[in-house]
Amino acid sequence: MSGGAQYVVAAYAVIWFLVLAYVVMLGARTARVGRQVEAMMRMLDRRDAERSDSETAEDRT
């Protein structure tokens, strides 16, 4: 690689590495929010199931 080319490669490598790292950081935050939403949905499902079970038991009595 010529003397000039290595500087060009270094400059573009820095650009793409930092931009990619920033996108990964934003993606990680979005994934964390997604996991929390899923956990909340499971909690809601469990709560709904418990409510319907207790309503069925009340109807029987």
Binding site: V19, Y22, V23, L26, R29, T30, V33, G34, Q36, V37, M40, M43, L44
Partner: peptide, 26 residues
């Protein structure tokens, strides 16, 4: 690229805010 990163960042913030509101309601 700037607009895409801005939209992605704002999307994450809106999602976090919506999640906090949902958690408070729950």
């Amino acid at each position: 690229l700037f607009v895409a990163l801005l939209e992605l960042d704002l999307l994450g913030r809106r999602s976090e805010r919506a999640l906090r509101r949902l958690a408070m309601r729950l």
